[in-house]
Design a protein around this nucleic acid. Structure first.
Lengths: 140, 140
DNA sequence: CAAATTAGGTCAGATTCTCTGACTATCGTC
DNA sequence: GACGATAGTCAGAGAATCTGACCTAATTTG
C-alpha cells in the first residue's frame, strides 16, 4: 500500500472525529471545506490570498468559504493596516468558542494514537512528519 | 501543529504529484474525486457499495464518479456472479494503462522521501502508519 | 415456502465546492 | 505620475456531494 494512502487514512479519521465533536457541541453550521480554511488562520489574522495558498484552493474559492464562515460568525474581515488592498481574516467570537472544542478532540485522538503506538513511536512519527514537511509543504 | 494536518501535508503533496504525472501522460480526463475512487478498486473488481465505503462517500456519489470513469474508459461494470443484485466495478483498458504511470510516480516520490529521511526512518514511518491504520481504518 | 427484512443500486433534486476569466482598487517602483 | 504587480471581488459554469425515495434481488425468519 502506498505511503500516500497510508497517510490519508489516519488524517481522515482525525478530521471525522473533530467534525463529529464540533457538531455535537452545536457547531453544526460549519462545513468540512470551511473548516479546512479556518484552521489555517494565524492568531493575528491572515490574508485571503495566504489562506487560499495554504489550503491549496483558488482565492475565489477561499473567498467563498470565508463568506460562509463570516455569515455564521466564525470569522470577521478587518482592514489590513499594512495594505489598503488587503483585509485580514480573523477568528471571531463564535470561531473562538469552537477552537477549544476542536483542540480537545485533537488531543484526545492523539492520546488514543499514543496509547496504541507507544509514546516513543508517536514522538518519532511526529518528528518524521515534521521532517517530511520540509520537502512537501510549499508554504513554509 | 496537530498530527492530522501533519499527515495531510505529505499526502496532498503525493496526490498532486500523481495527478500532474497523469495529466502529462495524457490521462487528463480524470478528476481528483474520480481518482480517489479508482485507486480503491481491487484487482478482481469491487462493488459500488464497497467503493463508497472505502472512499467515505455515499453510494450515490460513488455511482456518479464511476459513471464518469466508465464513460472515459477507465473502468467497466460487470455483473457479480456471486450476487445478482450487485455489479463489480473493474479496471478497464484505459485504466490499466494509467496504473503503471501512477505507480511510477508513487515510487519516485517515495524514493525522494527516503532520500530526505533515510531508509530506516522511512521504513519506521511505514510501519507506524500501518499500525495506526489498525485503529483508524474502519474498512479492513 | 411465503412474508418480511436486508442489501445493492439508481433516480431526482438541491446544495456546496471549485474553477476560469474578467474586473476594480491599491501598492511599489522608476 | 505612469506601469506593472498584488489583493480581492463579480459572474458564470462545471464537478462533487448529500438527502430522500424508490426498485430489485437476496437472505432470513416464522
Amino acid at each position: 500500500m502506498n505511503l500516500g494512502l497510508l497517510l490519508f487514512i489516519p488524517y481522515r479519521a482525525m478530521e471525522n472525529r473533530v467534525f463529529a465533536a464540533l457538531r455535537s457541541a452545536g457547531f453544526d453550521d460549519v462545513t468540512p471545506a470551511q473548516a479546512r480554511v479556518f484552521q489555517r488562520i494565524d492568531p493575528g489574522g491572515t490574508r485571503l490570498t495566504d489562506l487560499a495558498e495554504r489550503a491549496q484552493v483558488t482565492k475565489q474559492t477561499a473567498g467563498f468559504l470565508v463568506d460562509g464562515l463570516e455569515r455564521a460568525g466564525y470569522v470577521e474581515r478587518v482592514v489590513d493596516p499594512a495594505d489598503g488592498r488587503a483585509r485580514l481574516v480573523r477568528v471571531a467570537a463564535r470561531g473562538a468558542r469552537a477552537v477549544p472544542v476542536a483542540a480537545a478532540v485533537v488531543a484526545e485522538v492523539e492520546a488514543e494514537w499514543a496509547a496504541h503506538l507507544g509514546a516513543a513511536e508517536t514522538a518519532a512519527l511526529r518528528d518524521t512528519l515534521a521532517k517530511l514537511r520540509e520537502i512537501t509543504d510549499p508554504y513554509r
